[in-house]
Simulated assay, not measured.
Amino acid sequence: MVGARRLRVAAVALGAVGGGFSALYALLSEQGRRARLAIGVPEAPPPRADGVYTPAHLHGIRPSLRFAVVGDSMAAGLGVDREDELPGVLMARGLAEEADRPVRLTTYAISGSTTNDLPAQVDRVLQDPPDVALVIIGANDVTTRVSIGTAVTVLATEVRRLRLAGIGVVVGTCPDLGAIRPIAQPLRSVARSWSLRLAKEQKTAVEQAGGVAVPLADLLSPEFLARPGDLFSADRFHPNAAGYDAAAAILLAPLCSVAGVWHGGPLPEWPQRSALAEARRPTTRIVAWLNRKHRQQK
């Protein structure tokens, strides 16, 4: 009889816990639905501006450096209005200035892609291998609930494929989805935790596969949290032109390094969030170039 009573108590307790999980799941599902409505569906894909970008003062005739952009909507540049605001264009121009040679940009990134879509993109890249590739991926893995294990395994495999082809690889890891204001709490905290866990695992996997990982969440999240109105586009999910400038400022140096054209000295270890200001300190020619571009646009 004592055993039966304990079983009944346990059943009631499990039912209460199960009911709590059901209620939480229903709440998170409803918040996800509302966030999707608030963010909306993009009216059009981002502009494309593939082609050759030449430094302002080219010294002599030099062969083009080939640069590929792979990944999701952040890699493709969703959220900007003009071609010259695209992250690929910003970085192609920065690479050209640092290398003192033309850079041929080819964009393979597709909005909405998850890591599971990378193999098809990499297949296209390997048909005409570039010198360097930038990969930005992960946000859609979180929003579509791709398991972290699956996402990391696929990413590592594709980075190895690119490296075996002699391509220098830089990966911008998953951004911090906790900075996305249309996502209500507690779903925003769940998304933040998941995205940061994914980013951490991505960094380890990319480095083991021979690529260079840039922790976008660590380096950009404080700024996006502090100035969401300045750095997010109208959908409040994708960066705007200023947001992509901020990302380009931290991605250009490692891109130049893996391309073998970096002349700014040894790259430091990536700092923690508390050292964000030091990380963005304008001491390199690349960041100075971005500052000049801003002044010219004003």
Rank of each mutant, 00 (worst) to 15 (best):
282 P>D: 10
152 V>K: 01
295 R>T: 13
246 A>W: 05
75 A>H: 02
104 R>N: 11
73 S>Q: 07
190 V>A: 14
93 R>T: 04
33 R>M: 11
261 V>Q: 10
275 A>I: 03
119 P>E: 12
273 R>D: 12
111 S>R: 09
13 A>R: 12
255 L>W: 08
185 Q>I: 03
251 L>M: 12
146 V>E: 13
48 R>S: 12
161 R>L: 02
181 R>V: 13
84 D>W: 03
52 V>W: 12
176 D>Y: 06
34 R>F: 06
287 V>M: 09
185 Q>K: 09
39 I>V: 15
94 G>S: 07
5 R>Q: 14
176 D>V: 00
104 R>F: 05
66 R>W: 03
198 L>R: 06
24 L>H: 11
236 R>T: 03
295 R>I: 03
46 P>I: 02
86 L>F: 01
187 L>Y: 10
123 D>N: 11
6 R>S: 13
142 V>P: 02
13 A>E: 13
214 V>C: 03
57 H>K: 14
133 A>T: 07
8 R>E: 13
168 G>F: 00
219 L>S: 09
16 A>Y: 06
77 G>Q: 00
267 L>A: 10
192 R>H: 14
162 L>K: 02
66 R>E: 11
153 T>W: 09
139 A>F: 00
226 A>M: 09
188 R>W: 07
72 D>M: 01
111 S>Y: 03
114 T>I: 03
203 K>E: 15
106 T>D: 12
226 A>K: 14
30 E>V: 10
189 S>C: 05
72 D>A: 03
18 G>Q: 11
108 Y>Q: 09
192 R>N: 11
281 R>C: 04
197 R>F: 08
280 R>D: 14
225 L>M: 12
68 A>V: 06
6 R>E: 13
45 P>F: 00
114 T>H: 05
55 P>Q: 10
187 L>G: 08
33 R>A: 15
179 A>Q: 12
31 Q>W: 06
57 H>Y: 10
131 D>N: 11
277 A>C: 07
100 D>C: 01
219 L>K: 06
159 V>H: 06
62 R>K: 15
167 I>S: 08
182 P>A: 04
69 V>N: 09
196 L>H: 08
45 P>N: 07
215 P>Y: 07
214 V>L: 04
162 L>D: 12
33 R>V: 05
253 A>Y: 06
156 A>L: 05
185 Q>E: 15
256 C>A: 15
213 A>Q: 07
40 G>A: 07
15 G>I: 01
243 G>N: 04
147 S>Q: 10
37 L>F: 14
67 F>P: 05
